[in-house]
Simulated assay, not measured.
Amino acid sequence: MKKSAIAVLAGVLISGHVLADDAQPKAYLGLNYLAAQYEEDGVDDTLDVGAIFVQLGAQINPYLAGELRVGSGITDDSTTIYGVDASLEIKNLFGGYLKAGIPTGTLVYPYVVAGVSRAEVEVTASSGYYQVSNSDSGSDISYGAGVNLDIADNFAANVEYMQYYDKDGIDISGISFGGQFKF
């Protein structure tokens, strides 16, 4: 089933390149920094972690785009649980999304986004001379909202809030900012 969902999204991206208005850029490549918060039931602290991700998308029409994202963690955060020091890092984050926006006739393009994300996190716990690492991954429905600001014909700045994962007592969400080159 996962392979068929990826095939459908890839088809949407390719058809978007063919069906989009010739006057508008059809595809985009973006780079964003994600300031994420990780919350887990039973852990009092909210951990602030950072990731960077690449976006590859295609504008299907002025209102709809398909997008793939691939990212990796670049900063971790630590807490103490039951006297043990623990740090958490997002190892990787990827997904496929549909974005629906409203062309305003101005430089501002607001949108909503929904899709499926897969995240892998790694926890490293240490106490005295002992250190243990464990990683876990999972997929969930993701959704959010953002805005593009067209700075030039082929470049837009981007700010977005996204709920990436909210399942099994774990919540990963955050705000990202970056830019997109349109071609």
Rank of each mutant, 00 (worst) to 15 (best):
N148W: 00
V43A: 13
G144D: 08
E160M: 12
I81F: 11
G66N: 11
Y109K: 05
D136E: 15
K99R: 13
K182L: 02
Y33G: 04
L56W: 03
S127Q: 09
A23E: 15
L98A: 15
M1W: 00
D150C: 01
Y82R: 10
D166P: 08
D136P: 01
G71Q: 07
K3T: 03
A58I: 01
R118D: 14
I170F: 01
R118N: 14
Y97D: 12
A100V: 15
H17S: 05
A145L: 14
D48C: 00
R69W: 08
P25R: 06
V116F: 09
Y161N: 02
D77W: 01
V116G: 10
T75W: 00
A5P: 00
D85E: 13
M162E: 13
A125T: 13
A20C: 09
G66K: 12
V12E: 09
D77Y: 01
E160N: 07
I175E: 07
V132N: 06
G57D: 08
V54M: 10
G174K: 01
G11V: 05
D85A: 11
H17E: 02
Q24D: 12
G16M: 07
G115E: 12
D153I: 00
Q180I: 01
I52T: 14
G16S: 08
D44A: 15
S126R: 04
A152V: 02
A157K: 06
G11Q: 07
A125W: 04
G169Y: 07
V123R: 03
E120K: 10
E40R: 15
S176C: 02
F53G: 00
A145I: 08
G73E: 11
N134W: 04
A86T: 14
D166L: 02
M1L: 04
D41A: 13
G105M: 05
T75V: 03
D168Y: 13
T104M: 11
V159C: 03
D166M: 02
L98K: 09
I170E: 13
T75M: 01
A114N: 10
S4W: 00
G96E: 09
L13W: 12
Q55F: 00
L98W: 09
A114P: 07
G30I: 04
K26H: 11
T46Y: 14
V123F: 13
D77K: 01
T46G: 07
L13P: 06
T106E: 15
L56D: 04
F183E: 03
A35P: 03
L47K: 08
A27Y: 10
I74M: 09
G146V: 05
S126N: 08
G128A: 06
V159P: 06
Y28V: 04
V121D: 12
N32S: 08
T124S: 12
L68S: 07
G101A: 05
L29P: 00
G11N: 07
D22R: 12
M1D: 09
E89K: 10
D48W: 01
G105T: 09
S4E: 04
V12W: 06
Q37A: 05
I151D: 12
T124G: 06
K3Q: 08
Y63L: 02
K2A: 08
V84R: 10
I81K: 09
A145P: 06
I52H: 06
V18H: 10
A51T: 08
G66R: 11
D21N: 15
S137E: 15
T80M: 05
I90E: 08
G128N: 05
A65L: 03
Q163P: 00
Y164T: 02
A35C: 01
H17W: 13
K99D: 10
